[in-house]
Simulated scan of single mutants.
Amino acid sequence: MRRWPYTFAVAVALAITATAVASSVYLGLPLKDPEGFLGPAYVRLPLLALMFFAAGIIPSAIKRAGIRKLPQGIAVAVREEWSLKRVGYIATGLITFYACYVSYRNLKSYLPVYRDGVLEDNLLVEFDHWMMFGSNPALVMHELMGTDVTAQILSFAYIAYLPLIPVTLGAFLVLSRDLSIGAWYSTALGLNWVLGTISYYILPTVGPAFWQPQLFTDLSTTNVTALQQSLFRARVDVLADPWVSERIHGVAGFASLHTSVTFTAALFVGRTGQRLVVRIAAWVFFLLTILATVYFGWHYIADVIGGIVIGWMAVSIGAWATGNRGRRRRRNLKDDDQPATVTADPSDAGASSA
């Protein structure tokens, strides 16, 4: 079992799922489905799986037989490229990722009940002011970058995170013939949800936009505005009576999981030697995400730092758990299903020793 790259991910998924179920029973609160942009879980997960499998099969089928003979091409592609082992690995990656995510969302929703009235935002406000020599970082950004065009650009980047993460997971699970690469990424993403949950309970905060909302009233209206208002209404409803509310609580500041997940993605594509354009795009998106989280008041500077630490830990632990320690050379998608050659790189000794 240790040689199976998903052993650790399955254990982590079972542990956090058991924790969420035990919390639900202990608190007398139901487990809830955090509905996403594709609808409820029983629709979303099978649909995502079908989309990912189609993305892996159809291009190969067209290349083999052309569009006119697509059914024959699909049959050949499935027979020659899609072993039960490969399908099982991809399904395991999706299920463990989703189990960790759903459990994380529910445990995040239970946070106000477990830590009733305990918030440490004042501590992080003071740290922000210390880091910025007495100024508020969000207000400094508003002054330097403006509150109209910049708000629209950063809002687009922030909201794009929601569909991009499952899409990148599907890409690495389906398109990489080295099955341990997909396992590594899936494990790393799952660890983000687990480590993020732990950080929420260690230092419960709500973030600047919910702690000092008056600082962000000059920003132009964006999709982030609507999202923050929706989260605020859900928070008020849950706090009023969590046993009656049908909403799921989604406000927590430390650490920033937008930061941790995008840092995980950027670090991962570098460690796996993806194409230069992919690496550049990942790091640019990560930097835009950091700017957006502070600009809109989602997070404090300490949240961003915590998110980077979680992202590094997730990639490093994921590398160890899936047998991918050290930097890996980039593999062509036409390679076989055997693991990529692992070469030691002294520069990676620290990053892969977790």
Rank of each mutant, 00 (worst) to 15 (best):
R2A: 13
V12R: 02
L14Y: 03
A18T: 11
V25T: 11
G28R: 09
G36K: 01
G39T: 07
P40S: 12
P40K: 12
A41R: 07
Y42R: 11
L45C: 02
L50Y: 00
M51K: 03
M51S: 05
I57N: 09
P59I: 06
S60Y: 04
I62T: 10
R64Y: 02
A75G: 05
A75R: 12
V76K: 09
V76N: 02
K85Y: 00
G93D: 01
C100E: 00
Y101E: 08
V102Q: 09
S103A: 15
R105A: 14
N106P: 04
L107V: 10
L107M: 15
P112S: 11
P112T: 09
V113G: 00
V113A: 10
R115Y: 06
R115C: 10
G117Y: 12
V118T: 13
V118P: 04
E120A: 11
D121G: 12
N122D: 15
L123D: 09
V125Q: 04
F127W: 13
H129Y: 10
H129R: 15
H129I: 00
W130Y: 05
S135D: 12
P137L: 09
H142Q: 06
E143I: 07
E143S: 14
E143V: 04
L144A: 14
A151Y: 00
A151C: 12
I153W: 12
L154Y: 09
S155N: 07
F156C: 10
A160H: 05
A160W: 10
Y161M: 09
L162H: 07
P163V: 04
V167T: 15
L173N: 06
L189R: 06
L189Y: 01
L189A: 03
G190Q: 01
L191S: 02
G196L: 05
T197W: 11
Y200A: 11
V206E: 08
A209T: 02
Q214H: 14
V224D: 08
L227D: 11
Q229N: 15
S230G: 15
A234R: 11
R235D: 13
R235M: 15
V238E: 06
E246W: 07
H249T: 03
A252N: 07
F254R: 03
F254Q: 10
A255H: 03
T264K: 05
T264L: 14
A266R: 06
G270P: 00
R271G: 01
L276V: 12
V277R: 08
V278A: 11
F285I: 09
L288D: 05
T289L: 06
I290K: 04
L291M: 15
L291T: 10
V294S: 00
F296D: 04
G297D: 04
H299F: 04
H299P: 08
V304E: 04
V309P: 05
M313Q: 07
M313N: 05
A314T: 01
G318S: 00
A319I: 01
W320T: 01
W320M: 03
R327G: 05
R328M: 12
R330D: 02
N332S: 15
L333D: 14
D335C: 10
P339K: 09
V342I: 15
A344M: 07
A349H: 12
S353E: 10
A354V: 13
